[in-house]
Design a binder for these strands. Sequence first.
DNA 1: ATTAGGG
DNA 2: CCCTAAT
Length: 708
Amino acid sequence: MVLKKRQSHGFNSLHFPSVPKAPRSARRAFRKRIVEDSQICAFELLASLAGKLLQESESSSASSNASDAHDRPAISDGVVKRERVETKPVKTECLDLGSCEESIFLPDYDSPSSDSRQSLKEIPPPAESDSILERSSTVSNADSSEKGNGDEKPIQCEKVLAKVEGVSPVSVETCDAKPESGLGRQPLADGMETRGLILDNACSSKDPMKLSAKNPALVNSANTVKVLSHGNSLPSASDLKHGNDVKLGIRDDDENFFRFNKLSNRRKAFKPSSRIGDRRIRKLLSSKYWKAAPKLKDYELTKPLFADLGMKPLHHKRKLSCNPDKTQGDILYKRRKFSDRSLVIASDGGFSSESVCNSPEKGMSGDNGSAVLCNGENGMSSPVIGHQAQLRSKDSHVKLSIKSFKIPELFIDVPENATVGSLKRTVVEAVTALLGGGLRVGLVLHGKKVRDDNRTLLQTGITSTENIETLGFTLEPNSVQAPVPLCCEEPPAILPCETSHLIPRSPETPIVESLKLIDSLNLAPSPTTNHADNNSETSDQEPLSSNADVVADNKPPSDSKALVAVEPASAEALAVVPLNQKSKRSENVQRRTRRPFSVSEVEALVEAVEELGTGRWRDVKLRSFDNADHRTYVDLKDKWKTLVHTAQIAPQQRRGEPVPQNLLDRVLAAHGYWSQHQAKQHNKNQVTATATATLAMLQITDGQAVEA
DNA sequence: ATTAGGG
DNA sequence: CCCTAAT
């Protein structure tokens, strides 16, 4: 027990009301620095943000060209290539995001397994790479030159080598627009079995935006490919790279993050007590200072299968061009609080793949485990993403087709005078933000969660069509594992400019009706998909509930042979999307773990309150819980509150660890006493004597009553 | 930063 | 426990 040794005096102790050891101002002195630091952080952040925006604006014109270009450079082996010809461009329709320049063409990659030379040709097949693949750390400028800039800043690529299956190492390249991009990228550790996983994410452009516009697709498709071809759960270490374009933000955030930690440490050094520091940090974490960083962390911490599969940079353009006038409509969206933990869902109320995207049939050819990521264009419906999986067994590979994922319920609030376009965008934003929070994909087999990420599919039992029936995927917020706040409170400047903006939720703004309308439209997906199945291969769709035990009904993925993932938004976009606090919190911040008060703690509390009264929780904390970092004065106050309540109710209604009646009696006595002397608390000395007597009487009375 | 109260 | 408003 951390309880401070306390004097064992009862009411008599009331004679000696404890007095703060020093004036509050003095005690707080050192804290000031903390505040200042945080402010500095804020400034730094702002500065970086400004810089980023500036940079983006500067490159806006260029980026626009780049963004709509079909040529998405594929890079491998340090060579930048245009893929237009080699890959089947899949045009993804934009979600009516104002500008469709963001549309991306996603190539199909063929599974190396069956036909490695095709899509992955540029990438050295795993088999060939018995040794560590060495790659030039610099990416050729081919792409950049085409773009017309990119020559200037050398871009660094860091190589990350990961050992895979104890045999062939996997080379992953990441690039950073910034030379010193330090943040240690996490290698594909975790002993992932990603044989043949090769991720190349080259950054040849100096312009972050450009990168963002291009790379995500690249990365995503790469991931998908991996999934298809290898079946093994693939680490999303590769996903890390996605954030290059947002580098600035990430770095800053990370720096801040570290700073925060520092602060906390410092604070602790000074004062070993109180959890206040922690709380403060938490608060900071959960607030605006965070943008992309959380995401990065998520990636680092987890290995989401599809976590950021499919994030498309939707916002660059908008960011720049928009000069949102805030006076316009306000659009709010938020996730429902109760749904924070589990998302999901259900039968695919989603859209058929076609409705969502134009996926090339070719890409879906059976032999190639090609992945097609698309962006659905139906504004309203877009938020609803069905989830469907299809598995096939071919050769020794397990192939799946996930038609779509359904996203959890969203609340959207928009003014009546908002335009349809703005509404659509809002929905997109919401979805983006949601996904940006970082999702993990869970695997459910036979209704049971498969937790071991390192096991092979074979070991897990996912080998053939038979299993497919019982295989399901779930989407889970990352926050569970990584209590990292993800979001970002960005100035509306980033928002879609047209008519509406996402704004932090404000009570007054919302028009409930419109909200509901939207909600129903978007959230309640009408089962577009056919339930009729003709295919032997079926996928289970399960509601993603926190339980994850639930197995959903099978869905007959009709014919899609390829994996089709619907991608609502880009990772970067996510980084930029402002979220309202609530959604943020619900998704990112984990509640403090519950720590029921022990009897001894209660005793200490009671004792302290008897002496100090009910209005000096800080002193109570200092007196009896100074060493209990997890008990804040608010906690103590709350506990007292509940204690009083507990003492007032029938013993049968009390729950949890029973508190000795005598303590409860003391609680009542003290409570009664102090509530009568609130006003007089000033003159403690004078009152003390009286208080003692009164309390004693009260206690006696109470005790008698109880006994009787 | 604390306190007080509602959720 | 969390969140907020008011100190």
